[in-house]
């Protein structure tokens, strides 16, 4: 009971109430996050409906390979995060540490690949204002209506704001994970006090969910050139 007493904050009646409050608090925060990302998704949807061809043309130029690999990396980090919660609750300290470190590693891989991708975008002149060639967009083959460079810029701005905001959330999440590692090494994450892992896990999974939607909205909205080894049925819509 003495350990329980130290874990229980002064203003709660019991551990169950404290856990419930922590999880619910994080869910309310995530509701806020849904609306902050929802606002920019709404803006994106409106311009996507307004300028479909420009958005598809710009999307087709994004690096779908890095985007897809990053999706898998992030999903894997969600798996290791979920396993960390499991490890904490069954009291397996070594597994917890391994899973947390793996999550951090996968998160760092994601951010590293993102930096590489941004750099390639820069080299391909896909950065509005900074590195952008309006002329290359006015004559794209296979597009019936002319694509307007400033509308392409609009799509690219959304790409940078959305992925940038997502990356910022990733960085915050990694900071929280590092704190968890420190707590785990001090032996403070136990089957009694597992809520820090659970709550930070909720946040991490949410950031993953945002990316799940960013992938189709940004990368997969245009038709991409299939790699030569992949069989593609001749569907034309």
């Amino acid at each position: 009971m003495s350990t329980n007493h130290a874990v229980l904050a002064h203003h709660f009646e019991n551990l169950e109430q404290q856990r419930e409050t922590a999880a619910f608090g994080m869910w309310i925060f995530l509701a806020t996050e849904v609306l902050i990302f929802g606002a920019i998704f709404t803006c994106y949807a409106i311009y996507r409906l307004r300028y479909p061809l420009d958005f598809e043309a710009a999307s087709a130029r994004l690096n779908v390979l890095i985007g897809s690999i990053n999706t898998i990396v992030l999903l894997s980090s969600s798996l290791t995060m979920a396993l960390s919660v499991h490890a904490t609750r069954v009291g397996r300290q070594q597994m917890l540490l391994t899973c947390l470190l793996l999550t951090i590693l996968l998160g760092a891989t994601f951010l590293g690949l993102k930096v590489v991708e941004y750099y390639q975008d820069y080299k391909e002149k896909l950065v509005p204002v900074l590195a952008f060639d309006p002329d290359e967009w006015t004559q794209i083959e296979g597009v019936e209506a002319p694509v307007q460079p400033q509308r392409v810029q609009l799509m690219l701005v959304f790409y940078y704001i959305m992925t940038g905001l997502h990356a910022a959330h990733m960085i915050v999440g990694m900071g929280l994970l590092i704190w968890l590692v420190i707590e785990a090494r001090r032996g403070l994450l136990t089957p009694v006090r597992y809520m820090p892992v659970e709550v930070i896990g909720l946040y991490w999974h949410f950031v993953d969910i945002v990316w799940i939607f960013l992938l189709p909205l940004l990368y997969l909205t245009g038709t991409h050139q299939a790699p030569p080894w992949l069989p593609i049925p001749p569907i034309h819509f």
């Binding site: 996050e33 609306l35 902050i36 606002a39 920019i40 803006c43 609009l154 704001i161 905001l165």
Partner: peptide, 25 residues
């Protein structure tokens, strides 16, 4: 407070981006 404030935050971010970099959102 919880559900409306984030939308304002996003609106302000977008105006800020447009103002700082001259992009036509």
């Amino acid at each position: 407070l919880v559900l409306a404030t984030p939308v304002l935050a996003m609106a302000l971010i977008l105006v800020g981006v447009e103002r700082a970099w001259g992009i036509g959102i």
